[in-house]
Amino acid sequence: MAVPPETTAPIDPVKESAAAPRTEHHGLWMQAWKRLQKMPGAMICFWTIVLLVVMSACSWLNVPLTEFRYDQTSTEILANPSATHLMGTDELGRDMLARIIFGARLSIAIGLVTAGIAFVIGTVYGSIAGFYGGKIDSVMMRGVDIAYALPELLVMILVGVLLEKVEIFGQPVGRGTFGILIALGLVSWMGTSRLVRAQLLQLQSEEFIDAAKAAGRGTAEIIIKHMLPNAMGPIIVALTFTVPSAILSESTLSFIGLGLSPPACSWGTLASDGWRSLRTHPHLILFPSLFIFITVLSFNLLGDGLRDALDPRTRRR
């Protein structure tokens, strides 16, 4: 998610006064949020994402957003978009808008959960490598290099197929969901870990870290309280880009038939269904694709905006 305006990162007073003049009593995050609000494009994307996430959440909580319920007696099969069915209906007479809202459930959740997995694994791994440095660092980073050398899609397909039938807490989340989540998590933490490591190596030479060490603080405390908050900006930007790439990967895998499969429903499986009737009923692939596109575009543009907002130097350049 984007920067919550109310959280204020603990910042060393010495550093803060050096970085920003103390004219306003705002923390780093508040300042970034203020700068972000001045970018209309990024704000449109931000609110679009909020809307999509709310849509996904409603779907999880079974809040009805449309009046359409599947009804086996429906005669409106493969109807074109009209006033009653804004996005038309599919081959069983199901309303496409209702299906897309239901698909948002998995598509958005997969994007966000993958970013979460990438954040947790990447931060822990990168922190250890970056904090200790030296031999530990080079061995750990060589591991990342090897993992990078494997073609992503191959790993995702193999792991996804491997875990196809596993279910989360016995919940019927749909065939392949768990496998895809693990597969996406496996390929997306490496970038985060490299970033965290680089940030921590840089912070090692800061005086306030020396001060914390001299004061006898423990390793975990130094990393969590003093280093990570200062590295948070670039990490959040990177995570904002992880979400759309996970959504793209999931939809691509589902499209070629190796990701989620029915009864699981995501925008990727909807597009995959629509692909078969491209010639006769293009609306079936058009609308799911449009939603994937809008979501990915919003996250990408918000990421660009966040990067500028969190690091004003790159903007001026």
Binding site: P244, T252, W275, L278, F293, V296, D304
Partner: peptide, 22 residues
């Protein structure tokens, strides 16, 4: 460029097939 990285490959393909092929 931003549109290019945000469009899934299969959407580009479907669009091209629809316009130029069909």
């Amino acid at each position: 460029a931003t549109l290019g990285i945000s469009v899934p490959g299969f959407v580009v393909g479907a669009l091209l097939i629809f316009v130029f092929g069909l």
